[in-house]
Design a binder for these strands. Structure first.
Length: 205
DNA sequence: ATTAAGATTTACT
DNA sequence: GTAAATCTTAATG
């Protein structure tokens, strides 16, 4: 009983490493400021919990783009990080636009540059990423591709629970650059049945 | 076949 | 604070 309950999976290190990297989308480039790690079948909040046409890409080789539709309206972009068969990926939640300002403003229909790539759906929209980009090899051009950034020092990285998930809420697998103005606000997942019911909380629902 | 919930965002009371 | 927009998946008939 001296061993830790579980070892931090490699996807957490991969998530931290993506902070500061630059994703070059279709005419717009974004420096990643906020990410979330999603592991394989062991992670109840991950799409990899079930093997479906949508999650198949997560089980493929790393450094490929995983795009999925969220609530039928938005696209969310992930980087597959684990080796083939593991099923882990990192969701790109926010970033700072470093190139293609005009195009980003047009796609997002706002001049507030802090909002151009704040939130996973908004980030994908700013970069022009859709399902046609699914499976793209990210290690080299053409766009979209990912340019590794300078390693970020640990004291600049904050972490907390993932946004909008109702399962495995205890895992602080969201990472962001502390104090960065482009980071999205934390929002708790919507309760499924009884809301705000006092007395008891379900940690791992 | 239908229903419910979800790694979301925006608009509105 | 709540509702609506609407795609994918799971559960059910």
């Amino acid at each position: 009983m001296d061993a830790p309950a579980e070892v931090a999976p490699p996807v957490l290190a991969a998530a931290r490493r993506l902070l500061g990297a630059v994703l070059h989308g279709h005419g717009v480039s974004v420096r990643i400021t906020e990410v979330e790690a999603y592991a394989g079948p062991d992670d109840p909040a991950s799409h990899a919990v079930t093997r479906t046409p949508r999650s198949a890409i997560m089980y493929g080789p790393p450094m490929r783009l995983y795009v999925y539709r969220s609530y039928g309206l938005h696209h969310c972009a992930n980087v597959v990080t684990g080796p083939e068969g593991e099923g882990s990926a990192v969701l790109l939640r926010a970033g700072a636009v470093v190139a293609g300002d005009d195009l980003a403003a047009a796609r997002r229909r706002t001049d507030d540059r802090h909002r151009w790539a704040r939130g996973p759906g908004n980030l994908a929209e700013a970069l022009g990423l859709t399902l046609t980009d699914l499976g793209t090899e990210l290690t080299a051009a053409p766009e979209p591709w990912l340019e590794p950034g300078e390693p970020v020092t640990a004291d600049r990285v904050a972490s907390g629970p993932r946004v909008g998930v109702s399962r495995a809420v205890m895992r602080p697998w969201r990472f962001w650059l502390a104090g960065d103005p482009t980071v999205s606000a934390y929002r708790r997942a919507a309760p499924t049945s009884a809301r705000g019911q006092p007395g008891r909380t379900s940690p791992d629902r």
